[in-house]
């Protein structure tokens, strides 16, 4: 599957819709661009004028706190004007179509949409139909992709363990419904990670998940053995109602990350989670807050990565015009 929409003809990033199909060099350049951005965040005056005069619209068709605020902060630290639009999808379906809404926003001369939508492929759809000068950043589409989350995760990993080829990384939990997991798998494989594992019961795994380039474990203990990074995913309560799991209790007993189980991984293994954390459901508080956890680092790196991606996409448009 190719995504010709992403890089423009000159090879720079125009939209950021998915990791899949992007070259390793592009991923590395996003990571490298994000490095100095972390310094901006540490300054007393946290602003650089890279996107001064640009307008970024956060268009969220799904509730989100973390992702939306980090995108907003990232845009503001780059000196862009930011507009937040939260859309109740139940209201849009019958009334204004997605396309109508886009046309209206385009007419306000914005430069970038950051889009989150409950349907897989929504960001591609918007990128295909939006005016050519506008960049689209996918902030999560259905179960398909959440590329900036995956980039901030690999950024966090790289800061601690830069040699991806030597790493064993396990992703644990609801892979089936997770756009984060799909993007992480593509990012880790593109960066030539030694081994990517997924650990979950079959009810939470996509069919033929091996074809994404992962090793499958149904047993947490077996899967954790010798890993360098443990990535936990959030378990949605709806999965029990849909009959995919018997109870949170049994899930925690089989797949929850506890201090004991973490000892099966390498002693210096990182513990990661895209948030928000369900304590006592997928991870124990002592692990989430423990010394191996980099969960809060992930959040602050989220701002740097989003600054990097936004500036790369909009810088390109400026260079072209």
């Amino acid at each position: 599957m190719n995504h010709p929409l992403q890089p423009d003809q000159a090879g720079s990033l125009k939209h950021f819709l998915t990791i899949e199909g992007l070259k390793r060099e592009i991923l590395v350049s996003i990571l490298d661009t994000a490095e100095p951005m972390t310094e901006v965040t540490d300054r007393s005056i946290k602003k650089i004028p890279l996107l001064r005069g640009k307008t970024v619209v956060n268009l969220f068709f799904e509730p989100s706190t973390r992702t939306r605020t980090t995108f907003e902060l990232a845009a503001k630290r780059l000196s862009a004007d930011v507009l937040n639009i939260a859309v109740d999808t139940s209201a849009t379906i019958k009334g204004e179509s997605l396309l109508d809404m886009l046309r209206n926003l385009e007419a306000m001369h914005v430069d970038m949409f950051v889009v989150r939508h409950p349907q897989s492929g929504a960001a591609h759809f918007i990128a295909q139909h939006v005016a050519p000068h506008i960049s689209i950043i996918n902030a999560g589409d259905g179960r398909h992709a959440h590329p900036t989350q995956a980039m901030l995760d690999v950024f966090t990993i790289r800061r601690h363990k830069p040699d991806f080829g030597a790493l064993r990384i396990a992703i644990i939990g609801d892979i089936l419904h997770s756009r984060v997991a799909r993007s992480q798998i593509h990012a880790l494989n593109t960066l030539l990670t030694g081994e990517v594992r997924v650990i979950a019961p079959k009810t939470l795994l996509p069919v033929d998940v091996e074809s994404l380039g992962v090793k499958v474990f149904y047993n947490l203990r077996a899967g954790l053995k010798g890993v360098d990074v443990v990535i936990m995913l959030r378990l949605q309560h709806e999965r029990m109602q849909a009959g995919r799991l018997p109870s949170e209790h049994e899930y925690y007993h089989r797949y929850g990350l506890t201090r004991d189980r973490l000892q099966l991984a390498k002693p210096d293994a990182l513990v990661m989670h895209p948030g928000p954390v369900n304590r006592g459901v997928e991870i124990s508080s002592s692990v989430a807050d423990g010394s191996q956890s980099v969960i809060l680092e992930q959040v602050s790196h989220g701002i740097a990565i989003r600054m990097a991606v936004m500036s790369m996409a909009l810088d390109r448009t400026r260079a072209a015009s």
Binding site: M1, E20, S120, G121, D141, G142, R143, H144, A145, R179, R182, P206, V207, D208, V209, S211, L212
Partner: peptide, 15 residues
Amino acid sequence: HEGFIASRMGLAGIP
């Protein structure tokens, strides 16, 4: 169709 294409694209499959 439920298969590796559906899994990659994150679209719900019909087996």
